[in-house]
């Protein structure tokens, strides 16, 4: 079944108030074109989750589309903090449930496997847990191990409404390959009710059938496939393009103040009609070619 649609059509399938799991990790494979289109369509009140916060969540929070974030902390690596996420937490303008990387992924795992809960050693003895007990009392509890009687921390499963995942290769059904480390992406997909795949390269299913060991997203879980080059820009897509260091620096600087962020959004999100215009604004092919990954290095 051919599920290929435009980014605009895929984003329009997400109602305000949805829980969206995002595939970014700091400055790599972040769903940037998706986040920009969400802002342009005026979708609001989203819950966003990911194991390590990335630039996609920061853009969505900066644009006012998010009311709640579930994440394990995050940054733009050495480019700086997730300024919009941090400011929103400091001001109390979004609800933040903060976990560790593993406790977030365990919630997805429990959701993916259909378990009633999952036990974990992490978080105990920490203020991360104390905060969760206050802010998300329905997400954490203690249980006794039925075999040993030992006390364990239990986490509630997480089932996002939709996972949005940037991949290198997908077919029209949504069967997809991710090159490089995949952090929480497989568990996000399996835990979510459906998945939107955004791919750099669209290939015939026959290509997938020749290397099925590589398939980490099952087509039947996918509702929409979007074929859009440089859709993670300015973050990196391993083996396809490097992060755009200059643009991330520009963003990190702008995001430091609400006024700076406003100006960034006006120029790079609301000032363009779509992702294609955004790429032109950056300098088009002449600029993007400079980011192309070296085939041996992968960046």
């Amino acid at each position: 079944m051919d599920k290929v649609v435009t980014l605009s059509e895929a984003v329009a399938s997400i109602p305000s108030g949805s829980h969206v799991a995002l595939s970014g990790f700091a400055i790599t494979r972040a769903t940037m074109a998706f986040a920009a289109e969400v802002l342009r369509q005026g979708i609001r009140n989203l819950t966003v989750s990911q194991c390590v916060g990335a630039m996609d969540a920061d853009l969505l929070v900066g644009g006012g589309a998010v009311s709640r974030i579930l994440y394990g902390g995050g940054s733009l690596d050495r480019f700086g903090r997730l300024a919009c996420v941090n400011r929103a937490i400091e001001e109390g303008s979004i609800v933040a449930e903060e976990y560790s990387s593993l406790s977030m992924v365990f919630r997805y795992v429990a959701g993916a496997l259909g378990l009633p809960f999952i036990t974990i050693r992490s978080l105990r003895g920490s203020d991360v847990l104390k905060h969760l007990e206050e802010k998300a009392p329905s997400a954490v509890a203690y249980v006794d191990d039925p075999f040993t009687g030992e006390k364990w921390l239990a986490l509630r499963p997480l089932n996002p409404d939709v996972a949005v995942v940037q991949v290198q290769v997908a077919d029209p059904e949504g069967n997809a390959w991710i090159y490089g480390p995949r952090w929480d992406n497989e568990e996000q997909v399996k835990a979510s009710k459906r998945t939107i795949v955004i791919t750099e390269q669209l290939v015939p299913t026959e290509v997938i059938r020749r290397d099925p060991e590589r398939t980490v997203i099952h087509g039947f879980r996918v509702s929409h496939v979007v074929h859009l080059p440089f859709s993670a820009h300015p973050t990196a897509v391993y083996r396809v393009y490097d992060y755009d260091a200059d643009h991330i620096r520009l963003y990190a600087e702008a995001a430091k103040t609400p006024e700076g962020m406003r100006a960034y959004l006006d120029k790079y999100v609301y000032g363009v009609k779509d992702h294609w215009e955004y790429l032109e604004l950056l300098g088009g092919v002449r600029h993007l070619t400079k980011l192309a990954a070296d085939p041996i290095l992968g960046y």
Binding site: G72, G73, G74, S75, R81, N86, E98, S100, S103, S122
Partner: peptide, 12 residues
């Protein structure tokens, strides 16, 4: 308060 990077895998 001023909020920073958080846990990532550090707590784990």
């Amino acid at each position: 308060f001023r909020h920073f990077v958080g846990s990532g895998g550090a707590n784990d």
